[in-house]
């Protein structure tokens, strides 16, 4: 069933990383992603790879799941690597054939690009795998709170995200129902060219839109009844709180980032 799709693919668990404050997860993982780009030689990149690998083990989520996330971009990784391998010039020629020249510099460059892409996917998957959408929304709302100063309605945006997450399964279920209803009336959605199939979508999209508007009106009334006005003066059931483990994560991440800068200075850069 399509309604079984989970958004962000949260995989519940009790690991150290699962139980971190979602704000700290976002902060540390954002820092790591930035430092993925700063690692410039094998020593610092090795540290990055090692730390990410250990983190993966800590989440107790099967490495298969992480590789699943990579599947979608295999082509992109290979494509950019090959392009880099061919276009980056250098002095130490390894291989030459017809108009193609491959240099050691080019090889390193493409290897680093591949490693960077893989690391970014793994780190961001780690965030969505270990954090529930609710926690993620709450954390984003809190982290972006300073934007209120420049009149960006952060709470309202977060509320919209929550409601969207809440209604995605409901609307998927409804789409299925409408599709079945239209099929029962003889609608053909599987055959024909692109135009024909696009046209076949109209009798599904229109009822879905209309019912969404009705849901929106209903929900707005229900929210009114429950005294919703806006962000100001609201309290929360679950208050986000930094704990000892978040301090540990912060210090460890900071140490790794410092380590990367230090290791960068020990040997020459392999990337431009």
């Amino acid at each position: 069933m399509i309604s079984d799709i989970t958004i962000g693919q949260f995989m519940p668990g009790r690991s150290f990383i699962h139980r971190m404050d979602p704000r700290m997860k976002i902060i540390t993982m954002a820092a790591l992603i930035i430092f993925v780009f700063l690692a410039r030689n094998m020593l610092s990149m090795g540290l990055m790879l090692g730390f990410t690998f250990i983190s993966m083990l800590i989440t107790r989520i099967s490495p298969k799941m992480y590789f699943k996330g990579l599947k979608a971009i295999w082509f992109l990784i290979i494509f950019t690597s090959v392009l880099n391998m061919l276009y980056i010039g250098g002095d130490t020629v390894v291989f030459k054939w017809w108009i193609f020249t491959i240099t050691a510099e080019g090889l390193w460059q493409s290897a680093f690009i591949a490693m960077r892409l893989v690391l970014i996917i793994i780190i961001s998957s780690m965030l969505t795998y270990t954090t529930s959408p609710t926690d993620l929304t709450a954390a984003i709302e809190r982290l972006l709170a300073p934007l209120n100063w420049i009149k960006i309605p952060v709470h309202e945006l977060a509320m919209m995200m929550t409601i969207a997450l809440r209604f995605i399964p409901t609307l998927l279920e409804e789409t299925e129902k409408i599709m079945d209803a239209q099929k029962a009336r003889g609608a053909d959605m599987e055959n024909g060219g692109v135009m024909k199939r696009a046209k076949a979508l109209i009798p599904i999209v229109i009822p879905l839109l209309i019912s969404s508007f009705r849901r929106a009106f209903d929900l707005a009334t229900a929210m009114d009844c429950r005294c919703y006005t806006s962000g100001s003066g609201r309290t929360r059931l679950n208050v986000l709180r930094y704990r000892f483990r978040d301090a540990v994560a912060f210090v460890t991440t900071a140490a790794v980032c410092t380590g990367i800068i230090y290791l960068n200075m020990l040997s020459p850069s392999l990337v431009q």
Binding site: S132, I163, R166, D218, L219, A222, R226, T235, R236
Partner: peptide, 17 residues
């Protein structure tokens, strides 16, 4: 059409919040 949150207890908490 009257449930707001993605988790039951958070929905119940919506009014008091």
């Amino acid at each position: 059409n009257q449930l707001v949150a993605t988790i039951v207890e958070e929905d119940v908490a919506f009014g008091p919040e």
